[in-house]
Design a protein around this nucleic acid. Structure first.
Lengths: 106, 106
DNA sequence: TATATTTGGACATTATTTGTCAAGAACTTT
DNA sequence: AAAGTTCTTGACAAATAATGTCCAAATATA
C-alpha cells in the first residue's frame, strides 16, 4: 500500500536512516538548519528542487517523494470540503482533458 | 457527465443566462467590475464566499460550484506532473485517513 | 455616432512566503 | 554537573504574491 506519511516525516526518516545530522543535510541542501527542521515537522514546505536533491542524496525514489509532496498540498487544501472526493475526480478529468487537447494540436 | 468548465466560465454562463450585466453582478457582490471581469476570464480567483453569494443570486447548486472552484485549483497545481493521477489518489487516502482518526477520537 | 458594457493596465495596500539569525531546549558524552 | 552536540523556537527583515481601486481604452449595442 502507498505511503501516507507527510513529506516532512519521509525526509526525516531518510535522514535518520542514514544517520546524518540535520545540520549536515541542511548544509548539503544549502538551506538554514532551522528551515530544514521546520520542513521535517511540516511547519514549512520544501520546494520541488529540494525534493530532487534529497532524492539524489539518499538515492530515494524521486517520483514517490514528489507524489508525497503534492498530495500533502492537495489534501491540505480541500480537507475541509465534504465533496473532496468529487473535487479530485473532476480535477483529474480536467487534466486529462487538457492533455488530450495538447496532443491533438501537435 | 460532470461539468469541466472553469469557475470563471460557469459564472459567466450563469450571469449571461440571467441577462445581467457584469457591472450589476459586481455591485451585488460588492467587488470592482474589473475584478469580476478578471474572475470570469480566470485571470483572478474568486474566494469561497463570493461563490456562495453567486449560488444564492442565481439559485445555482452551491456544492457544484465549489467542486468546480477547488478542482480548478487542484488541477492547475499538479497539471505538469506525470504522476498526477497517483497524487490525487494519495491525497484522497490522506483525507480519508485523517477523517477516520477524527471519528475515533470522538 | 452615441451609449452601454467589458477589458487592460497601473498603482497602492495587504497578506503570505522565504531566508536569516541567535538563543534556548533536549539529549549525549565526558 | 559541565561541556558538547543536535534540534527547535521565535523574532525579524526581505522578497513575492494576492487584493482592491481607479480610469482609460476597447468592444459591442442602440
Amino acid at each position: 500500500m502507498q505511503n501516507l506519511d507527510s513529506i516532512g516525516t519521509q525526509i526525516r526518516n531518510l535522514r535518520e536512516t542514514a544517520e546524518m545530522p540535520l545540520r549536515k543535510l541542511a548544509a548539503l541542501l544549502d538551506i538554514d538548519q532551522s528551515t530544514l527542521s521546520k520542513i521535517e515537522r511540516d511547519e514549512r514546505k520544501p520546494n520541488a528542487q529540494i525534493i530532487e536533491q534529497i532524492a539524489k542524496i539518499f538515492k530515494a525514489d524521486k517520483t514517490a517523494l514528489l507524489v508525497t509532496f503534492y498530495s500533502d498540498i492537495v489534501a491540505y487544501e480541500i480537507q475541509e470540503e465534504n465533496s473532496f472526493s468529487e473535487i479530485l475526480q473532476v480535477a483529474e478529468a480536467k487534466i486529462e482533458y487538457k492533455r488530450t487537447k495538447a496532443k491533438k494540436s501537435k
